[in-house]
């Protein structure tokens, strides 16, 4: 670690450092900074004449801790809705009563409904609608591949969402509560991924195994070969989550920052 004590090189040489340079102190922040610049450039290119139109049709989760809790509540409504719906499809109804897959999907149904009801009870003021309408038209509930693939997407997204939202929470209690839920979501994600393909409980798609994370919010980022979860910003999460929510139930998370 003696490198830390050396003066920084000239501007030109530090620009020229390859991405595969062995990790040194601060390199985590270097990657983070690189994305800040790049993202700003993309935004700068369009913000002049292309301001985002805020549709009154969106559900605004609000701001502050209530906003984060509402954001989590919305995602839990979506997950609970999914695990409830799949119970009527022939993939689930065809599972043996003592099969591992049925037991796992039953537990996930229980856990996600409990998460949803917990948030409903915990958010006593400023709570968003209790009845967001999901859109599962892209899911074939009679197909194992479709059901488990969607479950994997939801669980991985949930983990990335909670991890990326922790930084917006002001209350230690709420942060800890979010932590209590996200690790269960990560356990879910791992077994669902293993059902899809054994020993894929982590992979470079969700963890920075071989490539860096490049979220638009730089605090989420980590270098390659660090094995950190690829946390996502609320905006990045709802870009996916909103495709599973019906018109009128889609989320506006612009207040989370």
């Amino acid at each position: 670690m003696s490198d830390n004590l050396q003066p920084r090189g000239s501007d030109d040489t530090s620009f020229a450092q390859p991405l595969y340079t062995p990790i040194k102190r601060r390199s985590f922040f270097m990657y983070a900074g690189a994305t800040a610049g790049a993202t700003a450039l993309v935004l700068a290119g369009c913000s002049k004449d292309n301001d985002p139109v805020t549709s009154s049709n969106l559900i605004n989760v609000g701001s502050g801790d209530t906003g984060v809790l509402n954001y989590a509540y919305a995602l839990e409504q979506l997950e609970a809705g999914f695990y409830t719906r799949l119970r009527t499809g022939t993939y689930y109804t065809g599972l043996g009563s003592t099969s591992a897959e049925k037991q796992i999907l039953d537990d996930l149904y229980y856990h996600e409904v409990i998460h949803r009801e917990f948030f409903k009870a915990a958010i006593t003021s400023g709570r968003i609608s209790d009845s967001l309408t999901p859109d599962f038209s892209k899911v074939d509930f009679n197909s194992r591949t479709s059901v488990l693939g969607t479950a994997m997407a939801f669980e991985d997204l949930g983990v990335a969402a909670y991890n990326g939202a922790g930084q917006y929470i002001a209350s230690p209690l709420y942060l800890t509560l979010a932590g209590k839920i996200v690790s269960v979501e990560a356990r879910h994600a791992a077994i669902i991924r293993d059902l899809v393909g054994e020993a894929t409980f982590v992979g470079n798609d969700v963890v920075t195994l071989t490539t860096a994370n490049t979220s638009g919010v730089t605090t989420n980022n980590a270098p390659a070969n660090s094995s950190l979860e690829r946390s996502k910003s609320p905006a990045e999460v709802v870009a996916t989550a909103n495709t599973f929510l019906a018109e009128g139930s889609k989320l506006d998370v612009s207040g989370l920052k």
């Binding site: 991890n163 922790g166 230690p172 800890t176 990560a186 979860e229």
Partner: peptide, 27 residues
């Protein structure tokens, strides 16, 4: 986690290790 709230970058990194440990435990 609650002890890292003063530094959002470090907090998020810790959360991003936390969930990977949970994935390991699950497997």
């Amino acid at each position: 986690a609650a002890l890292l709230m003063s530094n959002k970058t470090v907090l998020t990194a810790a959360l991003n290790i936390h969930s990977v440990e949970a994935r390991h435990a699950s497997r």
